Computed example of a mutant assay.
Amino acid sequence: MEFNDVIAKRYACRKYDVRQVEKDDLDAILEAGRLAPTSVDQQEQHVYVIRSAEGLAKVDELSECRYGAPTVLMVTYDTTDVYEYPGGRYDSGVEDASIATTQMMLAAADRGVGSCWVNVFDPDKVRAAFGLADKERVVAMLDLGYPADDAEPSAKHSRRKPIDELVTYL
C-alpha cells in the first residue's frame, strides 16, 4: 500500500479473527518499532510480545480493551535511560515509546494486521503483574490480529476536524 493509503485506511480494530499473527508479519511490525526515531538516538523503548494464554489472561484482568486480539505488544521505556529536555521538566521516554508504537501500528496496517492502541490500564499494575523492573514505564498495549470479517471502524473514525482548526501558521 502507498503510505497515504495506510494512514487513511488504518483504524482501531476492536474485533479480531482467532488466528495468530504470522511470524513474517509480526517480525515486520517489530522491525518498524525498532527503526523508530528516538531523541538523541536513546532507543530506550522495549516491546514485550504477549501471546500465551497466561499472558493474555493477565491483559484481560488489567484492561477491558483486548477485544480478543491474539497478540498484544506491551510497549515500555527505561526511565533511567532517557534524554532529559532543557529545563528538566520533560524527558523523551513517552514520546519515543509512542513513536515506536505508532510505527508498529502503521506497519501492521500495511500488512493487513489490525491494531488498537490500548491505554485503558494502570501502568503500575501492569508493570507489577508482568514482573517488570521498577525503572520500566508502560506506555501502551497494542492489540494485534487479523480483523474479523465483520470488523469495521467506529462511527467516529471518519469524523475529522478541518485542517484550519488543527493547524496555525505563525
Score class of each variant (00 low, 15 high):
13 C>V: 12
2 E>S: 09
98 S>N: 04
28 A>K: 05
134 D>H: 03
103 Q>A: 06
109 A>G: 03
86 P>L: 09
73 L>E: 03
150 D>P: 09
42 Q>R: 13
37 P>Q: 09
38 T>A: 01
30 L>C: 03
131 G>M: 08
27 D>G: 06
38 T>D: 12
26 L>E: 06
48 Y>F: 13
11 Y>N: 11
151 A>C: 14
79 T>A: 09
154 S>N: 12
114 G>L: 05
69 A>E: 10
90 Y>E: 04
39 S>K: 11
52 S>C: 10
127 R>F: 02
82 V>F: 09
70 P>E: 04
101 T>K: 09
155 A>Q: 08
83 Y>C: 08
36 A>S: 06
106 L>T: 03
53 A>V: 10
117 W>H: 10
81 D>S: 10
36 A>Q: 06
111 R>H: 13
50 I>Y: 00
81 D>A: 14
118 V>F: 07
63 S>D: 13
72 V>F: 04
144 L>C: 12
123 P>I: 02
169 Y>Q: 08
162 P>D: 14
38 T>H: 12
105 M>V: 02
11 Y>F: 10
147 P>M: 03
19 R>M: 01
169 Y>D: 05
50 I>T: 05
110 D>P: 12
91 D>S: 02
28 A>V: 00
31 E>D: 08
74 M>Q: 00
7 I>F: 15
32 A>R: 01
73 L>K: 08
151 A>S: 08
162 P>I: 10
96 D>P: 01
115 S>Q: 13
70 P>Y: 11
89 R>F: 15
123 P>E: 02
105 M>D: 05
143 D>V: 03
84 E>L: 14
88 G>N: 00
170 L>W: 03
117 W>N: 12
67 Y>S: 05
20 Q>I: 04
20 Q>S: 02
146 Y>S: 03
125 K>H: 11
47 V>K: 11
10 R>T: 12
21 V>C: 01
161 K>M: 14
15 K>Y: 10
1 M>T: 02
149 D>K: 04
34 R>G: 15
53 A>P: 01
87 G>M: 03
75 V>E: 11
96 D>T: 07
129 A>D: 07
97 A>F: 00
116 C>M: 11
31 E>I: 02
157 H>A: 11
66 R>T: 09
69 A>T: 11
93 G>K: 07
170 L>N: 13
21 V>D: 01
53 A>S: 07
44 E>K: 08
4 N>S: 02
107 A>G: 10
44 E>H: 06
78 D>V: 02
71 T>H: 05
105 M>Y: 07
63 S>C: 08
142 L>K: 14
5 D>V: 05
167 V>L: 07
75 V>N: 14
125 K>A: 04
53 A>M: 15
3 F>R: 01
5 D>K: 12
29 I>F: 01
45 Q>R: 12
49 V>N: 09
129 A>W: 02
92 S>Q: 05
136 E>Y: 10
48 Y>P: 10
113 V>Y: 09
135 K>D: 12
106 L>H: 04
6 V>Y: 06
25 D>L: 00
52 S>T: 15
95 E>D: 09
109 A>Y: 15
29 I>W: 02
57 A>F: 06
144 L>V: 11
16 Y>E: 08
32 A>G: 11
131 G>C: 09
155 A>Y: 00
15 K>V: 00
53 A>R: 15
106 L>I: 01
107 A>K: 13
31 E>R: 06
152 E>S: 15
24 D>R: 00
40 V>C: 15
18 V>E: 13
